[in-house]
């Protein structure tokens, strides 16, 4: 993602956080505005429910600001914020019944959208939907690892910090997550091939 946030000057961030600590309301607003879209999208992908996502996102920000004193400037603020957000997500997911209809089914298929202005073939659209539905069916840590790696461009070390897991465990989640996505796509390939065979049989 080409968010300017990732490239945000560390010094800039340090100053902004210092202003927040000094009680500057405008700085609080700026910090929230800089991070809310990424955090919200991440949380939404974890819980797949718009209402829950807003609550969790708000909760994560409140917790982050309430414990800002424990934030270390050695890390990026976003990493720290995601750590808190992920923790709140996990608590929420644990409380949720496995099949409770709490997931927005209407939005289930709409995993992603091509980049703005792009026109895509039906084939590409199918692959896209398939990949996102595979992402949805991953376990929470696998999904988080995949999202943080590919979408938020975090290193395995940073992901380990967010998930509060050893780096080796993160690598194993990434590995399993990737393989699940690949297997889902393989299945599509086979289905497509058999469809084609059927078509040619009917045609011939």
């Amino acid at each position: 993602m080409s968010e300017p946030l990732l490239k945000m000057n560390r010094e800039d961030e340090r100053l902004l956080i210092a202003r927040v600590r000094a009680g500057d309301r405008m700085a609080v607003r700026e910090l929230v505005d800089r991070h809310k879209e990424r955090l919200f999208a991440f949380i939404w992908r974890m819980v797949r429910n718009h209402h829950d996502a807003e609550e969790i996102c708000q909760d994560a920000f409140l917790k982050a600001f309430a414990s800002l004193d424990s934030f270390s400037a050695d890390y990026r603020f976003s990493t720290w914020l995601f750590t808190i957000g992920y923790r709140v997500c996990l608590n929420r997911l644990r409380r949720r019944h496995p099949v409770s209809g709490e997931v927005d089914l209407s939005a289930l298929a709409a995993g992603g959208a091509p980049e703005a202005g792009a026109v895509e073939s039906q084939e590409a659209g199918e692959v896209r939907q398939l990949v996102w539905s595979a992402v949805d069916s991953l376990s929470a840590p696998q999904r988080a690892a995949i999202l943080l790696f590919y979408r938020y461009e975090l290193s395995c070390q940073e992901i380990a910090r967010v998930l509060e897991l050893p780096v080796a465990t993160v690598k194993s989640h990434l590995h399993r997550g990737r393989n699940s996505l690949r297997e889902t796509m393989e299945a599509l390939g086979e289905q497509k091939l058999s469809e084609l065979r059927n078509l040619s049989r009917h045609a011939g």
């Binding site: 993602m1 919200f40 995993g111 992402v135 999202l147 979408r151």
Partner: peptide
């Protein structure tokens, strides 16, 4: 694997706060 990674990485978010 690469296509999956590319889709996860590059697709626009369908949601906003």
């Amino acid at each position: 694997l690469e296509v999956a990674g590319h889709i996860v990485g590059a697709d626009a978010d369908p949601v906003r706060p």
